[in-house]
Simulated assay, not measured.
Amino acid sequence: MEDEETKPLPYVRETVLKKRKTNEDWAVKRRERLGARKNRGKENSKFAIKRPEEFVKEYRDKELDLVRMKHRLKLRRLPADNIRSKLLFVIRIHGSKDMHPMTRKILNKLRLRQILTGVFVKANEATLKMLVSVEPFITYGYPNLKSVRELIFKKGCGKIDKERIPLTNNDVIEQALGKFGVICLEDIMHEIATVGSHFKEVASFLSPFKLKCPEGRLRMKKKPYKNGGDSGNREDQINELIDKLN
């Protein structure tokens, strides 16, 4: 039987080859045009002149964000005793549009400076107050052991000298957290999952997890999850979202 590697290549007409080459050149030029158009749009947006009514609307939207924040804090009392788990995973799902500076300050304190970043936090009164304050811009819930493991092993990065370092070497972990008895990825996972005595140090060492946007555009509603939206506490259902974004 003739070896497949010795078989001659199939004959392709010259017109077909030329057409392929033309299509490839056209595709390259089209990508270049689209890229140039996108860059021009970004540059033009930097110098776009806002109308006075746009400034007024932007100011009113930000003030409305502050009013709603105060309203939520006044109506909702969330003592830590009512929380089913000490561990929460928080994901930022909205940008800074219509955001009051106070909201941005709280999100920065939670280390959620970008959309689709997530952090592990300990459920206590102070943390719950912050989460309620910025609820339209985040979603959170109780991560299970599988979610904790996959997040840390797949996307875990440590922060050393303000740089993100992938956790591919246990020497890096031991150097940063060895004094707390944490010397490997399994130790980090255990400390996070059990909300151990050194949870704060380990959670601070972990950089915010950068989650991926699923296929198609991610459309998250600021309406509370319990009312058919996407923001706020989704309890155990957070694990489905983590699977989708991990």
Rank of each mutant, 00 (worst) to 15 (best):
M1C: 12
E2T: 14
E2I: 14
E2S: 14
E4K: 11
E4D: 10
T6H: 10
K7Y: 04
P10S: 12
Y11P: 02
R13A: 09
E14R: 12
T15L: 12
K18S: 15
R20E: 15
K21Y: 05
T22C: 08
K29L: 11
E32D: 15
G35A: 14
A36T: 10
K38S: 12
K38F: 06
N39F: 07
N39K: 15
R40Y: 03
A48S: 15
I49N: 11
I49V: 15
K50N: 08
P52D: 12
E54S: 04
R60F: 08
K62M: 13
D65F: 01
L66D: 05
R68Y: 10
R68T: 02
K70G: 01
H71A: 10
H71P: 00
L73S: 03
R76D: 01
R76F: 14
R77N: 14
P79W: 01
A80V: 03
D81A: 08
I83T: 06
S85D: 11
L87M: 05
F89S: 01
I93Q: 04
G95N: 11
D98E: 15
P101C: 06
R104I: 02
R104K: 15
K105E: 14
L107A: 06
R111F: 07
L112R: 01
R113F: 07
Q114N: 11
L116A: 10
G118V: 05
V119P: 03
V119S: 04
F120D: 01
F120H: 02
F120V: 03
V121P: 00
K122H: 11
K122A: 08
E125M: 00
L128T: 00
L128Q: 00
K129C: 01
L131F: 10
L131Q: 07
L131Y: 08
V132K: 00
E135D: 11
F137I: 00
I138N: 01
T139H: 02
P143H: 04
L145R: 05
L145C: 00
K146Y: 13
S147L: 01
R149P: 02
R149C: 04
L151M: 07
L151N: 02
L151T: 03
I152V: 15
I152P: 01
F153Y: 08
K155N: 08
K159V: 15
K159T: 14
K159A: 04
D161S: 14
I165M: 07
L167P: 10
T168I: 13
D171G: 02
V172Y: 14
E174I: 00
Q175L: 05
Q175M: 04
A176H: 03
L177H: 08
L177S: 06
L177C: 08
K179L: 12
F180A: 07
V182M: 02
I183C: 13
C184N: 15
D187M: 04
I188G: 06
I188M: 11
M189S: 15
A193Q: 10
A193Y: 10
T194N: 11
S197W: 02
F199L: 10
K200L: 03
F205G: 06
P208I: 03
P208H: 06
F209R: 03
K212Y: 07
M220Q: 09
K222S: 11
P224C: 04
P224M: 02
N227A: 07
G229D: 09
D230V: 05
S231M: 06
S231D: 09
G232K: 00
N233T: 01
R234M: 15
Q237Y: 10
I238T: 08
L241Q: 06
D243Q: 09
D243F: 05
K244F: 08
N246L: 15
